[in-house]
């Protein structure tokens, strides 16, 4: 299906290293196929960034993986298990509509832990650990609407990580934040994710961010979605603002842009629905 270089098949990952195995995934909206026969393996502990043109189904993919959207066909397995048997965390793009404004920020973070039925002491311990990990300097006893956008999204991230997820889903987590806040939050997040080794699927429409945060970058085409390119990102961690001017980073970004432009130009007609 791919009009591009034929690198559509993702790199084969030994089954015991694969945290996520997607086979023959099919999904259509109103008769228009978005995915058909889509395969993907994600290595345990990897941060996989998914990048592609608008409407290519990036969010659709992680929503299906997170069990928020039904699949029309195929399987998405986590070490052989269904998603409901796996501890997952999910950070939504719109933190304003994802946090519960009727309870305090700390209670938002405690919420999934209470659902898990953890004892009070364990819940408080985790809350403290997260506050230390993310160097929280604002008052978590405030209500979400009393916090800045960056603080609210940080609370969302802490809530998602509180359950110690096996897989974390990030759906454009920084797109509603200003640049400075984004840089801060990105730095904190990569430190924690790399230390805990959480398998992460990141959807972003910011190419620079996708490369900076990822171990591997998946470039998708317009609908019906196929893999335009699948690149390892081997830049050293931690990735700071100097990484962004690293020659390796710049070369990778240039290559991605070329692939992206080809992916957009490849199907100008039937993929026009954004």
């Amino acid at each position: 299906m791919s009009p591009l270089d034929g690198s559509g098949a993702p790199g084969v990952i030994a089954p015991r290293d694969a945290a996520i195995t997607i086979r023959g995934l099919a999904k259509a909206f109103g008769g228009q196929p978005v995915y058909s026969g889509f395969d993907l393996d994600v290595r345990r502990g990897d941060i996989l960034a998914i990048f592609g043109p608008n409407g290519c189904g990036k969010s659709t993919l992680i929503n299906m993986a997170a069990g928020l959207l039904s699949v029309d066909g195929g399987t998405i397995l986590y070490d052989g298990r269904e998603v409901r048997e796996v501890r997952i965390g999910y950070v939504f793009q719109n933190y304003r509509e994802a946090l519960f404004p009727w309870i305090r920020a700390a209670d938002n973070i405690r919420y999934p832990l209470r659902r898990m039925g953890l004892p009070k002491r364990e819940i408080e311990a985790r809350l403290e650990r997260l506050s230390a990990d993310f160097r929280v300097r604002f008052d978590l006893a405030r209500y979400p609407y009393e916090l800045s956008g960056g603080q609210q999204q940080l609370v969302s991230v802490m809530r998602a990580l509180a359950v110690e997820p096996e897989v974390l889903f990030l759906d454009e987590p920084f797109s509603a934040l200003d640049f400075e806040t984004t840089l801060d939050l990105r730095a904190l997040l990569q430190a924690v994710l790399k230390r805990l080794g959480v398998t992460t699927l990141l959807v972003s429409h910011d190419l620079e961010e996708s490369i900076a945060l990822a171990d591997r970058l998946l470039m998708l085409t317009r609908r019906p979605t196929t893999v335009a390119d699948d690149l390892p990102v081997t830049l050293p961690w931690p990735r700071t603002s100097t990484t962004l001017s690293d020659p390796g980073f710049v070369a990778l970004k240039r290559r991605c842009l070329t692939v992206f432009e080809a992916a957009v130009a490849g199907r100008p007609v039937d993929g026009a629905q954004a």
């Binding site: 928020l68 999910y90 994802a98 519960f100 659902r115 898990m116 359950v163």
Partner: peptide, 23 residues
Amino acid sequence: TRVLAARVMGASEGRILWDVLVW
């Protein structure tokens, strides 16, 4: 989004009604 957030955090449909929809 709030309903989805609760679901992803493992809330049952009954809990979602009580913890999210009523609020």
